[in-house]
Simulated scan of single mutants.
Amino acid sequence: MATGHTDPQRRERIIAATLDLIADEGLAGVSHRKVAARAGVPLGSMTYHFRGREDLLREAFTRFADGVVATFDVHLGGAADADEARAAVVDLIHRLSDGPQRDLVLTHELYTLAAREPAYRELTREWMRRSRVCLERHFDPATARQLDALIEGLALHRALDTDPHDRALTAEAVARVTGGPARPGSAA
């Protein structure tokens, strides 16, 4: 088996295994031993790459947040005007809510941890700031802040509802927050 020095993907496998373990067992289920087994690495690799469990969790949640911000960037990056940006936000909400259950669980594990631990609160603040930067390409800062909260809320409601709302309701909500045109058939 390759050592940590000759296995450049080892750190990445450890982070991915940590996120998978959090999604499957929650934060309480994360230990160096379990992560090493899931990543297929020697237990000693854990302390070689991470100072401790907290360092590992921060790195894993940072990587997860980076992925969500990248999703925002992909969806909003191609919008040429406010109308295209509104449509991109609707697509983003539906992508987040229809996406893997794993992402929903990871989001809420991070939020719960952030509610208790200042370091994770800072990580989530930075995640929100970066998400708003993507939105501010198309909307003023106050609207971007409101829209970011709307995205989180609607994605959560759609993901957890047994009868999730449709795209028309999402589009109407986005239009209301962004001051966009009312959609045909929607209440003003």
Rank of each mutant, 00 (worst) to 15 (best):
A60C: 11
H108T: 01
D7S: 10
E122T: 09
H94Y: 11
A23N: 00
P141N: 08
P100D: 15
L19C: 02
A187E: 07
H138C: 10
R145S: 14
L169M: 14
R116K: 04
D66S: 12
F64S: 03
A173E: 10
Y48S: 02
D83Y: 06
H157Y: 07
G185N: 08
D73V: 12
R176F: 10
L150K: 07
R11P: 03
C134P: 07
D24E: 15
E126P: 09
A149W: 05
T162Y: 01
D24Y: 08
L96M: 11
F64K: 01
V133I: 09
A79Q: 12
R183Q: 08
G180Y: 05
A85D: 11
E122Q: 14
G26T: 02
H5N: 13
M128F: 11
D24Q: 15
G26F: 01
S45P: 02
A142Q: 08
A168Y: 04
L160F: 00
P100L: 07
Y48R: 03
A70F: 01
R63Q: 06
D55P: 04
H94W: 06
G153A: 10
L96S: 13
V89T: 14
D98A: 12
L56C: 13
T107G: 04
R176H: 12
E54L: 15
P164A: 00
A16H: 03
G29M: 05
A87N: 14
D66G: 07
Y48K: 03
D7Q: 07
E59T: 13
L76E: 09
F139A: 14
G179W: 06
H94T: 04
A188S: 09
L110W: 02
L106Y: 00
D7C: 15
W127H: 13
V90S: 03
P8I: 13
T107C: 05
A142S: 06
M46Y: 10
R51L: 10
R53L: 08
G185E: 13
A65Q: 04
R95Q: 04
E12T: 13
L43G: 00
A175K: 15
T124E: 11
Q9G: 12
A171T: 07
M46V: 03
I151T: 05
S186D: 11
P184Y: 15
A70P: 01
E152S: 06
T62C: 06
F50P: 02
L76T: 05
T6G: 06
R129F: 10
R158G: 00
A149L: 10
G153T: 08
A2L: 15
G180A: 02
G185K: 11
D91H: 05
A82K: 13
T18G: 00
A187R: 05
E136A: 10
R132F: 06
A37D: 08
E152I: 11
L147N: 05
P181H: 08
I151A: 15
A85C: 14
L43W: 02
